[in-house]
Structures are given as C-alpha cells and as structure tokens.
Amino acid sequence: MRALVTFVYVFLYTPIALVVLFSFNAGRNASEFIGFSAQWYGKALSNTFLMEALRNSLIVAFTSAALAAIFGTMAAIGMERLGARTRAVFDGLFAAAIVVPGVVIGIATLVALVEVFGFINPVLAAIWPGDQPPRLSLGYGSIIAAHGLFTMALVTMIVKARIAGLGRDIVEASSDLYAAPLTTFRQIVLPQIMPSILAGFLLAFTFSFDDFIIAFFVAGSNTTLPIYVFASIRRGVTPEINAIATMVLAVSLALILIARFLMREKKKPTT
C-alpha cells in the first residue's frame, strides 16, 4: 500500500519536476535538456507579450475574485432573508452556474455578448455626439464577467454553508442587546464568516487565473496567460513558459505557507 501511495505521489510530481527542470535548460528547445542556465527567466521577464499576458491574467483574476467575494457574500447574507420559494430559485441558478461546463459558459457568453454588442453599438453610434463613438467589444470586461459568474456562485455556496453553521442565536443574541443590525453584522457575523470569504476569494482567484476554456471564447483580442501558453504549446514551447510556470508555482507555494503561518498565529490564543 505504501509503495502504491509513493507511486501516486511520484506520478503527481514527475511532470511538475520536469517543468521546473526544463526551466533551467540551456538549450532553446523545451524537449532536449542540454545544460543548466537561468537565461530563460531573464528572457521570460523581458518578453513583453508574455508579461502582458501575465498582467492581464492577474488583473482579470483579481477583479473577478474580488467582485465574486463581495457580491457573493452579499448574496449569501441576502438569501437568508428571502422567502423559501425565491431562495430555491437562487439556489437553483447558483447550482446551474457551477454545474454547467465551462465550454458551454464560454460559448453562451460569446453568443449573447456578440448579439448584445451588435444591438448596442449602432445605437451608441447614432446617439453619440462626438466623432468616435465608443464601441463595446470582447475583452477584459467579458472575461471578468464570465469568470465572475462561476466564482460568485462558488463564494455564495461557501459563505452560505458557513452562515448555516453559525447558529441563529449568536445573531439574535446580539440584536437583543439593542445593537443596530449593521453593528451586529460588523462585530459578530463578519469575523465569523471572514475565513470562508477569504477561502472563496482564493478559490475564485485560482480558478480564474488558471482558466483557459472560458477565456478562449470571450477574450476577444486580449491574451491571458493560459491562452498564451496554449498558443506556445502549438507552435513549440521554449523554456520561457517553463520559467514563468515555475515562478507562478513558487509564488503560490510561498502564499500558501504565509497563509498557513498567519492562520496558526491567529489560532493559538483560542486553542
């Protein structure tokens, strides 16, 4: 059994080890290891297309995760106060947003936005006073919106589960003490649900940062990191891609460790 488990871990980590190894390849090719060199890190960091793709991905992931965290938490709290039937409709829609395959979300958003833009752009052009009317088109906005749908549903689910576990008595006990609801919320509820909001934000960020298929349909002329990587794989990868992947891995590992450390610090007094 131990042997099997060891084998699975080797299986999981061999490709990652190869990615890291080839990021230090002295050769031009990502499939033949010649010797050690850190040159691809320099090349990756000075490749403007790659850096722009990375920046786009960070902007998109951060914005959609932040929107998802805020609006998703609001929805989770708001749904507590809805009637059973309305709440069921929301539950169903959020579940649909999670379950519908990414490829369908991408397609449906593309189709809908193309239609909506086709309707709005001529109207804008007609009513715009200046020479150059703004034209709506696919880009950052559409990726953020499409990612936001899935991640908002994700945050809502996570926060709702936490609120359900909270126990109404805490909230009610606090309002019995004649605290205004907003103060109750800030002092009692928010600290309790904060870990789940953060967890939701992180999941949302990871999802959006790694998503290829939705962005592939709705990115328009913008390139995200996964789209850039996909195109490079087709043309033949240089170790630049390995270098950037290794850096992303290193940064996220550092973040996990920091998060672990912070949570341990916080937990100490209570345990």
Partner: peptide, 11 residues
C-alpha cells in the same frame, strides 16, 4: 490533425 506540425516533426 493539427496545422501546427513543426513541434511534432522536430520531436
């Protein structure tokens, strides 16, 4: 079935 055949030919 792929129009980017250079990587496969090179490998």
């Amino acid at each position: 079935i792929n129009s980017d055949y250079q990587p496969a030919m090179r490998a």
